[in-house]
Design a protein around this nucleic acid. Sequence first.
DNA 1: AGATCATATGTCCATATGGGAATGTGTCAA
DNA 2: TTGACACATTCCCATATGGACATATGATCT
Lengths: 117, 117
Amino acid sequence: MARAATTTDVFNAIAEGSRRNILETLSGGEAAVGEIVDRLRLPQPQVSKHLGVLRSVDLVRCRTVGRRRLYRVNGAALKPVHDWARSFEGHWNAQLDRLDDLLTELQQPDSHEGEAQ
Amino acid sequence: MARAATTTDVFNAIAEGSRRNILETLSGGEAAVGEIVDRLRLPQPQVSKHLGVLRSVDLVRCRTVGRRRLYRVNGAALKPVHDWARSFEGHWNAQLDRLDDLLTELQQPDSHEGEAQ
DNA sequence: AGATCATATGTCCATATGGGAATGTGTCAA
DNA sequence: TTGACACATTCCCATATGGACATATGATCT
């Protein structure tokens, strides 16, 4: 199998940076496709396709007004992401960080420098 | 361009369900590759490859003990995801949900309304 | 009716993928 | 040393992708 479809779930949908940018743009409130195009300076077909992906996982919803389509964020769809990440909250606290440092130290008896890639 | 590499950032890395499962498995503490294989019932090469992706975005770290490799979560790498999702928190609250309901309502000429044209 | 605006959809392609299978590497035991 | 174990790496392939471009749909206005 290849990589899972971007429309599989919210995690796949927000993997793409442009789609996160679109969501951030919509964070302030409803916006038409053209406004998103102007703000993000992306080709209109691209924006429409990204919006299609976001819509398919219910991250955005839209209503039609005249010949424009106003999109808005459905933040509730992001709650699972928030909660999932939050379940690791204990892992970015001081206690465990010190343990991690210790383990890292034990692993590398020498250097203090150098990030791989 | 094709889809961004899974190693591009944390968002891409956690898009894959198996990798999220691995992180959850490691949530309880250090574990060797073989333990992950047993718990998730995945082929060992797959687990190793997933771990490679997770390592490349610093979501996991490992130390070598004998001929085993003990992996652990670096939860701090998930904080950006948490914070980003959290920035939409206002969008999954009652106030805005009611607004959303209203907009959805307006969108669907559902009620006792005559057809105009 | 056209013409024009706003958006969606379709086609093409280079690219990265995850899964499967086989093989390589490094460590320990006998 | 040889062999068994634990893990990483490599190869192959079907598949979905995002970008660029062209085109279709649909609503509004003259």
